[in-house]
Every structure is written in structure tokens, then in C-alpha cells.
């Protein structure tokens, strides 16, 4: 008999997680595809502590067990995140699937995770020993490999509140619904008084982990739109052309590369650069 657990609080869930080899279950939409007969689940889907969307001075705080539908319907969730989750799968899956599961599954194709990368969001990981808050980039160690410890749970995603309004998001899939991303791209560009103060981009679904290169995006910082267009644009695109090395999946690496560069150029040009 495989043991599964129904904790009624996060504290109880962490105590079980610390002593048993159980699989955390939030939405189940990735886990149940495998349908492992030997799996013992730690059911987190009714823990209200993990299903809240709140804000403080610095962050929009999204509970890891919030479903994609809950995010679509939330007044607090930023538009860039809504843009991504509303294109995930189909309504029945969005009603169950969660952002925490999307992240912890470890896939570079996770559409909500891409937005958390592009926005330099942080993850609050908790265990009965305490908690740690890390940038999402430190969470991913490789394909399906994360730094989540055996006794930890992802509790919240902390999205920075400012600078998210001017965003760009595109998912390229084979269909409008129920499509896995072939290439996905998210970018934010903050412009103040005609000057770019911050640019952040991320490319999903093309390599072992999401590609996020703040060092390259910094090339645009401090420039006016005109300066960026005339003096930096081509150099910036060349730098990404060298930095992006897609792997072959169901589709070719060459196709992915072309689409990435087209999306990056469109992101710039849609901002007048």
C-alpha cells in the first residue's frame, strides 16, 4: 500500500516532507501523465497558505499552488504573467495546473516559469529547518534538475512590482491550444524620460534551461530609443546571435534559432528601436 498524505497546514506538510519520501502534488497535471503506481503523494492542493496572491512594498507574492486560472482571474497578477498563463494548454488543465508545479517540474518549456525568469523573480523555499529566498536562475541546475532539497517545498514566487508594464510575450507552438512551446520569449523594457533604464529578456524551450543574459541586456541601459536604434541594436542582436545555441528537439535547432532572433528583433522594433 502506497502512503499518501493530506496535510491541513503548510507546517504539517513540511513535517511530513522532512521524514517521508513523498512527491509533492499541487495540480497533478504533469505528475499524472506518468501515473506512477508506486507514487506516494503529499497533497498540497487544498493548502490555503499556498494559494494566495498578495503584495507588499516590493513584490507581488504568488502562492506556489495558485492555479493558472486563479492567476488569470486575479486583480493583482501582472499582465505579463496573465499573457503567458492564458496560453497554457486549455481551460481544464489551467483549472488544475499550478505555477509551483510548472517551476518545480524543471522543464525549460514551462511557460509561467519563463515570465518569472524574465522578471528576475525570486522563489521562497521553505522546510521545517527554515526558509531561503533565491533568484529563480539559481533554482534551475539543468533539464529536470532543480536545487529543491528533499525536505523543501516551494511556497511563493516573488515578482518585482515595478517595471513590468511595458512587456512583450510570445509563445510559438504548433497550435493555439494544447501546444507545447517550440520557442517562447518574454521581455520587459522600462523607459523613463525617453531613456531605457532597464531591459530584461528570457528565451524558453530552446535549451536545457531558460536563457537569461543580463550582461547582454545591459548594453541597452542608459540609451535613448534613438541611440539604441542607431548605435546599439545591431551589436546587441549580434551578441545574442552568438549567445543563443538552441538544441534540437522535435524541431530543428536552426528553426529555433531563427525564431528566437526574429522575436528579439520584434521586441526591439515594437518599442521603436
Amino acid at each position: 500500500m502506497v502512503k499518501s498524505y493530506h496535510p491541513v497546514s503548510l507546517q504539517e506538510a513540511l513535517a511530513i516532507r522532512a521524514r517521508e519520501a513523498v512527491t509533492p502534488y499541487a495540480g497533478g497535471t504533469d505528475l499524472m501523465i506518468k501515473g506512477d503506481e508506486k507514487a506516494g503523494y503529499l497533497f498540497l492542493n487544498n493548502l490555503s497558505e499556498l494559494k494566495k496572491i498578495t503584495e507588499d512594498g516590493e513584490y507581488i507574492r504568488i502562492g506556489a499552488a495558485c492555479t493558472f486560472t486563479a492567476i488569470q482571474e486575479s486583480e493583482l497578477a501582472p499582465a505579463i504573467l496573465k499573457a503567458a498563463v492564458s496560453q497554457i494548454a486549455a481551460p481544464a488543465i489551467r483549472n488544475l495546473g499550478t505555477v509551483g508545479g510548472n517551476i518545480c517540474n524543471g522543464s525549460p518549456k514551462a511557460d509561467s516559469a519563463l515570465v518569472f525568469w524574465a522578471t528576475d523573480s525570486k522563489l521562497r523555499l521553505v522546510s521545517s529547518r527554515g526558509e531561503r529566498v533565491i533568484p529563480i536562475s539559481e533554482f534551475y541546475l539543468g533539464r529536470n534538475k532543480t536545487s529543491l532539497q528533499a525536505d523543501e517545498l516551494l511556497a511563493e514566487i516573488l515578482m518585482p512590482k515595478i517595471g513590468l508594464n511595458n512587456y512583450y510575450y510570445k509563445k510559438v507552438g504548433a497550435r493555439n491550444a494544447l501546444a507545447i512551446s517550440r520557442v517562447s520569449f518574454a521581455g520587459i523594457l522600462e523607459i523613463e524620460g525617453g531613456r531605457i533604464v532597464n531591459c530584461q529578456t528570457a528565451f524558453g524551450a530552446i535549451s536545457e534551461v531558460v536563457i537569461r543574459r543580463p550582461d547582454l541586456d545591459a548594453m541597452l541601459s542608459g540609451k535613448t530609443i534613438e541611440e539604441a536604434k542607431k548605435a546599439v541594436k545591431e551589436e546587441y542582436l549580434r551578441a545574442y546571435d552568438q549567445a543563443i545555441l538552441p538544441i534540437r528537439g522535435r524541431i530543428s535547432a536552426e528553426y529555433r534559432k531563427v525564431v528566437c532572433m526574429n522575436l528579439l528583433r520584434d521586441f526591439l522594433e515594437s518599442n521603436g528601436i
Partner: peptide
């Protein structure tokens, strides 16, 4: 329909619907 929402029953573990 699970608690008012459409879901795929193939992706729901029995234990999650207590």
C-alpha cells in the same frame, strides 16, 4: 466538473479530491 470547474479526470489523483 470538479467543484464547479472543468478538469480532465485522467490528470486528477483520487486522493486530491477528498
Amino acid at each position: 466538473i470538479l467543484d464547479g470547474q472543468l478538469v480532465n479526470s485522467c490528470l486528477v489523483a483520487l486522493g486530491s479530491i477528498e
